[in-house]
């Protein structure tokens, strides 16, 4: 009984220290004590974030080989490369919580961890690359900038680096759409069609409405999250409306209008049935995305095995050489 009580007291002290650190806006670091639920909640969110970067390469990579100018091709390749890099940062940050990249990838491949539902929509035209940059990256930034102040240090620091690159991508996407919008009538139509298809899925990126969001309240109490889903979604709509006007494109929502009283734009109802359907795995590309990811992993297995075998050989060679050297010196 004494042991249990001592443990209990230690936990209470830890908890009090943790709560005080969060309240004081201090950063929690990997070696600090943290509640189990805080740890598992972070693993879930950060892994999902990492997976989204990796799966998110697919809809854009789909257009690398067809990019219509060499300048655009270079921009797109650089962007997809950045996404792989963001995935790497985020997996590393998640590993500080006591998991491994292999374990996380395994959970992605077996469907036990999710990725952002937006990447289950197809890129059907070149303009989709611009719409993803403007709207999808725009929504991601709106979500992620507050994460730069997240209570967990490694996550917050990863987000600072990632947000810088994301803003750059977002501007490039906007500029791509602007070129199309101001181009030939066919290009303008292509841009409008892409915005029509990506607008609502982008609004869904902020997650379910506040009253249906399972993790929100706890995440906000822990200062993992700083704003609610609906707050961020509203912020995003308010940012996009003038940008769409500047682009010379319309947003596909007849109910969208400025509300003087609220000082915000009112907008139409989101199709939550579609959101849940995509989230449950039944969106347009869920099957395709995960199949490609698994295939890349499975077809690459022999390469990873070769690298591991070679590393083992060369390190044992080196150990032998070191030993020989020690003997020779002795």
């Amino acid at each position: 009984m004494t042991a249990v009580t001592a443990e209990h007291t230690a936990d209470t002290t830890h908890q009090a220290r943790f709560d005080a650190a969060v309240a004081a806006d201090e950063r929690i670091e990997p070696r600090d004590w943290m509640p189990d639920e805080y740890r598992s909640s972070l693993v879930r969110q950060m892994a999902q974030h990492a997976h989204s970067e990796i799966i998110g390469m697919q809809p854009e990579a789909n257009w690398i080989t067809r990019a219509p100018s060499l300048r655009r091709k270079a921009i797109l390749m650089a962007k997809v490369q950045d996404e792989a890099g963001h995935g790497l940062y985020l997996y590393s940050a998640t590993e500080t919580l006591g998991t491994s990249r292999e374990e996380l990838l395994d959970k992605l491949h077996s469907g036990r961890q999710k990725y952002s539902s937006i990447f289950n929509y197809p890129t059907l035209t070149w303009a989709d690359v611009g719409a993803i940059g403007w709207l999808v990256d725009g929504a991601a930034i709106t979500n992620q900038v507050p994460l730069c102040r997240c209570s967990y240090g490694p996550y917050a620091r990863a987000m600072v680096r990632i947000c810088k690159e994301e803003s750059f991508h977002q501007r490039q996407g906007y500029e791509l759409l602007l070129a199309l919008s101001q181009g030939t009538p066919a290009q303008h139509d292509m841009a409008q069609d892409a915005v029509n298809r990506w607008w609502w899925p982008s609004l869904m990126m902020f997650g379910p409405p506040d009253d249906e969001s399972a993790h929100s309240a706890q995440s906000m109490a822990w200062k993992i999250k700083r704003h609610s889903n609906d707050e961020l979604r509203q912020r995003f709509v308010d940012i996009c409306v003038p940008q769409a006007e500047a682009l010379g494109l319309t947003l596909p929502d007849p109910d969208l209008r400025w509300n003087e009283e609220r000082g915000h734009h009112d907008f139409g109802a989101i199709d939550w049935d579609e959101f849940w359907q995509v989230l449950k795995g039944d969106g347009p590309c869920n099957e395709q995305r995960i199949t490609q990811r698994r295939r890349a992993h499975e077809e690459g297995a022999w390469v990873r095995e070769a690298a591991a075998a070679y590393a083992a050989k060369t390190s044992s060679d080196k150990a032998e050489r070191d030993e020989a050297q020690v003997e020779a010196t002795a």
Binding site: M57, T65, V80, A84, L88, Q292, R295, A296, G300, V303
Partner: peptide
């Protein structure tokens, strides 16, 4: 053409 198909993420970065 390799983008998103590499055996490890590091190679997605390197090949790109």
């Amino acid at each position: 053409e390799w983008a998103g198909h590499a055996p490890v993420l590091e190679e997605d970065v390197a090949l790109a």
